[in-house]
Amino acid sequence: MKNLEIKKISELLSEFPFLSAFFNDNGLEIEGKEELTLPEYFAALDEDEIEDRAIDVDNLMFQIGEFIEQMIAFLGKDEDIVKTVTILQGTDKSGNKEDFEKLEIHQGEIISIVGPTGSGKSRLLGDIEWVAQNDTPTSRKILINNDIPDKKWRFSSSDKLVAQLSQNMNFVMDLSVFEFVELHAESRLVENKEIIIKRIIDKANDLAGEKFSPDTPITSLSGGQSRALMIADTAILSKSPIILIDEIENAGIDRKRALKLLISEDKIVLMATHDPILALMGNKRIVIKNGGIHKIIETTDQEREILNELEKLDKTLSAYRTKLRSGEIIEKIS
């Protein structure tokens, strides 16, 4: 296929520029050897080198072909948009049928998930991520765009259905904010990298209570700033159509705007939370009990009014917090 064996490395590189990442990550130095074909290149490595660096030539030739195919598939598709995700009834832990038949979730919707620890929230998410087809412990079935989904959602590293944002996530790399987002952008092979990076950092600053600059080290961001950056980055750069949020701590970040940003990027947002302000922001909420979906509640008008009240309380609370932080004497805020 693709004449991998006949073409010169330079020809391969100009046809498939992404191969340079492959050569680099596999520790294959090609500088000065661009005029060789791959078999010539491997043949020119001396035996000690092959043994020392544990190079498996046959396997590498196979992997290069595989990599090229994946990347072509990855770059070639834009039409692959997830508009709806449908969950079809399965069973709870006792084997009883779930109390719903079909739940269709649309792009731009926020669905809250409630239920005690161990009730089966993770399994529900697991079913969606694995696009269950009657083959998980719950026997649920997941449809994408009302159709039986492609198997690729299960194994492809570039096409994950679900991206996750959770409470205890941290940045562990030693990079500046700019370098970090750049690295992510490069791994996603985006064009107009600079513009996207700027947009992410601006959006994150928009969500964060306190501003940060592109050259701030990510490990020194505050909790709120970290969450803001993670959300902005996931909203804009992650290819996953579904975002799972496991609570967002209410400090240093504008949560309402964060959710708005996610749905404005056409994501489906699933949110496991017991914070009424977050849960009521959802269009619906799924109640989980004994491993099964027990109820699906649409947020009522009355609940929305209550949400307004709660948001006011929340504002008051954070106003007190701001005063405290800036060293003021606390007086009653009206």
Partner: peptide, 26 residues
């Protein structure tokens, strides 16, 4: 994966994929 950011997870998985494109990554 539960303790690092989504971005780091994605970058890490894509690096794994570059060195072993044929593997199922879970």
């Amino acid at each position: 994966g539960d303790i690092v950011s989504q971005a780091e997870r994605e970058v890490f998985a894509s690096r794994v994929n570059t060195v072993n494109p044929a593997a199922a990554i879970m």
